[in-house]
Design a protein around this nucleic acid. Structure first.
Length: 100
DNA sequence: AAGCTGACTCGCT
DNA sequence: GAGCGAGCCAGCT
């Protein structure tokens, strides 16, 4: 399947997130003038293979569902502040969120 | 055209 | 903080 126009916009933006910074699904949607964070997740799930998808996290700081381990390793390698707890690894959004 | 689904969020308990 | 319900909207039957 080919990426939809919306998905391509998502990929464009995600590809621009600098190493060491993150955005939430909601942030990505907002910057695209949309209120569909779920569609952002869907786009990354299907077409995120070529972009740093691990730099997109939930508003809670939780990593991409199903890829927590891999995302944590990649983020740690980039120097992103991580908080490890019983629930898993979470990003410190206060310090790592990309202002743009 | 109508309905369902989902890598989401937010408010309330 | 965890669980739940409702709103959201792009994409695919």
């Amino acid at each position: 399947m080919l990426p939809t126009p919306f998905a391509e916009r998502v990929l464009d933006l995600v590809a621009r997130i600098p190493p060491g910074r993150v955005l939430t699904y909601g942030d990505v949607a907002e910057r695209l003038g949309s209120r569909a964070p779920r569609a952002v997740g869907t786009a990354l799930a299907r077409f995120g293979g070529g972009v740093p998808w691990w730099r997109v996290v939930r508003s809670s700081g939780d990593l991409a569902p199903g890829h927590e381990r891999e995302a944590a390793a990649l983020l740690r390698a980039e120097g992103v502040a991580l908080a490890v707890g019983p629930e898993g690894t979470r990003v410190d959004l206060a310090s790592a969120r990309w202002p743009g």
